[in-house]
Every structure is written in C-alpha cells, then in structure tokens.
Write a protein that binds this DNA or RNA. Structure first.
Lengths: 200, 200
DNA sequence: CCGATTACGATACTCTTGGTTCCGTATTCG
DNA sequence: CGAATACGGAACCAAGAGTATCGTAATCGG
C-alpha cells in the first residue's frame, strides 16, 4: 500500500542516504510553472530539473517518466474535494459541475490535460490514476441519485455514470475549446439541462 | 482558396513534374493502418513512408508535419455527413449523438484523437480544422433548435452550443474511457436526457 | 567507528525521431 | 530546350527521453 505518498511511483527506503524531500516539492513546483509558461509540448525534463535546482537523475529516481511527474504536478491528491452532498439535488449537481470545471480549468491542469490524455494510451497507470480520482465522486453521485430516485425526484432508470460522464465531458470540451466560456452561467445551464433530463 | 483539396497543407503547382497522386493515398492508408496497429505515440514518419513505399521527403512535400498527416488520415472530409434534420426532434438529436459517436469510435479516429487533441495547442491550424468540421453541424442544430423553440417543443433559452458540447463531450469521454460502453442504448439514454433537459 | 546502502550533483552517453538538405534522375510546361 | 518541380535514396542535424558513471555525502545497523 505504501505510505501516504501519491498515486504513482515511489517505493520504500530502508537504509542509505534519505531522499531530500525538498527536491520533490521543488520539482513539482517547477513542473507547474513550466507547464503554464511553455505548455506541455515544450516541457523538458532538463528544464524541470534546472529550475528545481537539481538534475535529471534525481527526478528519474522519483518518477518513472515525465508524464508521471506532470500528472502528479497537475492533479494533486486534494484537487477534487468532497462537496457535502445531500442538500438540494440541484445544488449538489451544480457543485459537481463547478468542481469538475474548476479542477480542469486551473491553468496548470488546462495546460497538462491534453498532453496527459494522449499519454494515457501509453501509460495505463496514469489512466487509472486519474480515473480513481473520480471514483469517490462517482460513488457519491451514485448514492445521491439513488436517494433522489426513491424520493421520486428523478427517474429510477437514471444512471449516475451517464450523468457524471456528461458533466466531465462538458468540462473537458470546454477546456479543449477554450475555457473562457465556462463561467457560472454555463455551469447553471448545464446543471439545469441534466437535472431536467433525469426528472421523472 | 485552393482547389478541392483538404483542410490543411498543400499549395498550387504550375510547372514541373506533377506529384504522384498515388503517394498521397498510399500515405494516408499507411497512416491509418499504423495508427491502429501501433497507436499514435509510436507512429513515426519513417514508418508511414516505408509502408507507403515512399520516403519522408515526399511526405513532407505534402504535409507540414506528422500531426497534419494524421489529422487528414483520421478525419477525412466526409466523416461527418448531414443528417437530414427536420423530422422528429428526438430522431434528429439521436442522429447527431450517434453520428458523433461513430465519427469518434472509428478505430483509427479513436487511436488518433487523444494525440491530436494534445497537438492542438501546438498547431492551431489543426484545431480550427477539426472545429470547422463541426461548424456545419452546429449551424444545423442551431436552426433546428430555433424551429423547435418557436414550435414550443423546447425552451426558448436552450442553447444549441451547450447541447452540441454535451454531445461531443459525452462521445469524447467515452472514447477516452473505453468505447465499449457506447452502444445504441447509451446513445438513446444520452439523447433522452438532453431532450428532456431542454423541454419547456 | 565501519561497512553497506542509497542519494546527491555533474557529466557523458545512447538512441529515437522530427525535420532538412543534397544528390542524380524523371517528368511536365512553355 | 530550359525552367521548374517531383521522385527515391541517403546523409544529416538538433532535440530530447532515458541511462550510466563517478566521486561525494548522508544514514543505518552493528
């Protein structure tokens, strides 16, 4: 299970000189900066190492490849918070839409997302890592929808997985096409469509 | 305006030896095959040239870069057809959902899409080229929605751009997560959600 | 304190690949 | 015929991912 580390990479040390923890942070910070400055395509390991004040070897000691580093830099563990579901159904759905949008429209996330999506076919580990980020969301929305169904608020056949995919897809398309249109009014409109779409 | 060629690349010739038209076709076919066989990440120019029975130079004479070639191979002009909108609104929307899904779940399109999305930040030309593929769709759905609104079938505030993005996003997410779930039942469910979501 | 182990910075290195250039030859236009 | 362009073939260049080596530093177990 490994200690409270990240989704990817890293093993456990027993003896020998310990890793300098400041390097890990410096590397992630450098990657974030460079992602925004030069974009995913022009991001090089040497540049990250240089800005972090270390060397490529130190980075490859921590991450198996550049995409792994980028993933951890752009999608830290706490990116998706819990949204205290359970209040008004519309508020709950809106919260998920807004939360997904916010997670994707961070400058660093927006810069990293297209490139990472492309790497997913080559690095299934990363694919699963990002998916697992949404696992808790899926479960939450699934429960919430079930409750709403028994309460007669939504159709019984409504599938939480359809709903979640529509939400994520809308946010993703927005990022790929230009996040300037993803304002709060957009979130409200999307939420309304989806909510009305699953009412009985 | 250039002759009836493709969205990207190509200029006009006046004198000199004409290009062998079979090379263009052979290259596109080779690219399609290799995309499916090895994926976008492992697709190399040399491999395409080799399988097409020509050389890199001949390819770079036709396309400014590998992504341009891949784009033309994976998203030919006739990929998105018109759907004879105007009948039943639900049938029209379902047609768009199914059409988008089909366009994205082609083996070659599914293999090329993630990689191309990543290149869009580096090659705005490609970005616009793919977007223009949907321009006609957008216009058609916009008109159709306006008619439906005056007929009282949908809300007046319903935005065709929201609808189209939800459709494309859902199909895209499906491809990125695994197209095996995008069957006709899926298309029907998505269509129902969206349709009910914009009813008055 | 000692040996084993691992990390560190620095550097050099290998290998792949996108893209360019040059060659001699072939084809078309005017 | 001459200018222009394409062709296959091959060499070439530059960049960058990832690996390896070296001398040094830090930590652990004994």
């Amino acid at each position: 299970m490994a200690p409270p580390n990240s989704d990817v990479g890293d093993v456990q040390r027993g003896a020998g000189r310990p890793r300098d923890p400041r390097i890990e942070q410096a590397a992630l910070a450098a990657a974030r900066e460079l992602l925004v400055e030069v974009g995913y395509a022009r991001l090089t390991v040497a540049a990250v190492a240089g800005r972090a004040g270390t060397t490529k070897a130190a980075l490859y000691r921590r991450w198996p490849s550049l995409p792994h580093l980028v993933y951890e830099a752009a999608f830290p563990d706490d990116l998706l918070k819990d949204w205290h579901l359970g209040a008004d159904l519309r508020a709950d759905l809106l919260g998920i839409v807004v939360g997904t949008r916010d997670a994707f429209t961070t400058p660093v996330a927006a810069a990293a997302l297209p490139g990472l999506l492309a790497e997913f076919s080559t690095h299934p580990v990363l694919h699963n890592a990002l998916l697992s980020r949404f696992a808790s969301v899926f479960e939450a929305i699934d429960d919430r929808l079930r409750d709403a169904a028994t309460a007669g608020e939504v159709k019984a056949e409504a599938r939480s997985e359809d709903l979640l995919r529509l939400m994520i897809g809308a946010a993703l398309i927005g990022v790929l096409l230009g996040p300037e249109t993803l304002d709060d009014a957009w979130a409200a409109r999307i939420t309304d469509i989806l909510l009305e779409g699953i009412r009985p």
